[in-house]
Design a protein around this nucleic acid. Sequence first.
DNA 1: ATTTTTATTTAGATTTGTCTAAATTATATT
DNA 2: AATATAATTTAGACAAATCTAAATAAAAAT
Lengths: 218, 218
Amino acid sequence: MNLTVAEENYIKAIYKLQDGAVVNTNAIAYELDTKPASVTDMAKKLKEKKLIDYEKYQGISLTAEGRKMALQIVRRHRLWECFLVDKLSFSWDEVHELAEELEHVRSEKLISRLSEYLGNPTTDPHGDPIPDAQGKISKTRQLVPLDKATAKRLEVAGVSDQSSALLEFLHAKGIRLGTQIDVIERYEFDNSVEIKIRNQPAFTISEQVSKSIMVKSI
Amino acid sequence: MNLTVAEENYIKAIYKLQDGAVVNTNAIAYELDTKPASVTDMAKKLKEKKLIDYEKYQGISLTAEGRKMALQIVRRHRLWECFLVDKLSFSWDEVHELAEELEHVRSEKLISRLSEYLGNPTTDPHGDPIPDAQGKISKTRQLVPLDKATAKRLEVAGVSDQSSALLEFLHAKGIRLGTQIDVIERYEFDNSVEIKIRNQPAFTISEQVSKSIMVKSI
DNA sequence: ATTTTTATTTAGATTTGTCTAAATTATATT
DNA sequence: AATATAATTTAGACAAATCTAAATAAAAAT
Ligand SMILES: [Mn+2]
Ligand SMILES: [Mn+2]
Ligand SMILES: [Mn+2]
Ligand SMILES: [Mn+2]
């Protein structure tokens, strides 16, 4: 199965967003900074190639084959991130964009040699696990409360406080399971956090709230 | 100036083929394994971007800006070749295709770090000079008789024997200055060489002839 | 100086990936 | 249940890069 760069980026995005449930069109469009109509177009192609399951209006999920592809791309991405940090002295926050391009050079031999050269690392500079050559990947890292998270883009994966007051607040703000959050700023004086959710203006939440939102980096 | 991968490949091909004189459409098409009509299409675009000088039927040559671009791409290509051979233990004959892809990851910082990491090499695994960050490149390597050449694809750059018998033979075979030759096989028992010229079936030349054809790798 | 061959360009089409605007379907609210 | 809102898809368009077949120009051979 030979994929284009665009197809690889879609497959990887779907893998990243997929979490048990199906992935919806808008989430993929947001992740890839494209338009929902383009996602629908691509969904038809990827379905044709049997890399995703897709029925219109029903969301998208990877097939076994699609997942295999995704893991290969993720492996390449994370190994290149290791290379850039370990060998070329980049810092962990400047490697993602470069890896986003390097990941598309497809060569089993190149990647196995690179992995070996790096000492077959099992996690990338951001702590994310690196799939092995067979596509086996260790469980994704645990959840962290928002006030402890270091990454800029996060996904809400749970709440540590089940009080209806909190849940009401989150609901009103449009925060629910699976919601993607961009951290705009952290204010030291009161540990409040300015965040942004897709299609909404940024807003600030208190330390108390940020401690209650469990997130994972995506 | 932001180029697409296709544009970069054309610019590099033109640089490679340019040797004082202008480059013709068919040579570029052959080099890039595409069709002359496609070269004409691209020539119009690259002229629009002021990277080449081009008047129809008059051939193509790089502008100063185009040459600058070409040297950057060549630098990236050759540095990646060094990396693959020096660090990942590839042999010199398996790196070209990989470098052909890696060269399109554009990042000044990546390339300067890579160069530094490799000890700022000045020649690649094939003996070709690596342009520095400013695009300065040492003179291209000397000519070698065909029987001593190691590369698979060569360009005829002269003859060491001016006898009319030889020149007639070369003329009859379609071998002239600038002709590109692919070496198909070298026969040890009599040191004859089977070669192929674009648009012609392969044929074999004797050791005597191969000693007289001066070539450079391209 | 013609004729033949080779090189190059044009015309028109195709594929891929994208977009906007409008239409449709699903979900949430009243 | 009806209405409003959000998500998704369709229709139609576009740019990039390529191709084939036909037309034209340049170069070589006679
Ligand atoms: Mn990518
Ligand atoms: Mn990472
Ligand atoms: Mn290339
Ligand atoms: Mn080389």
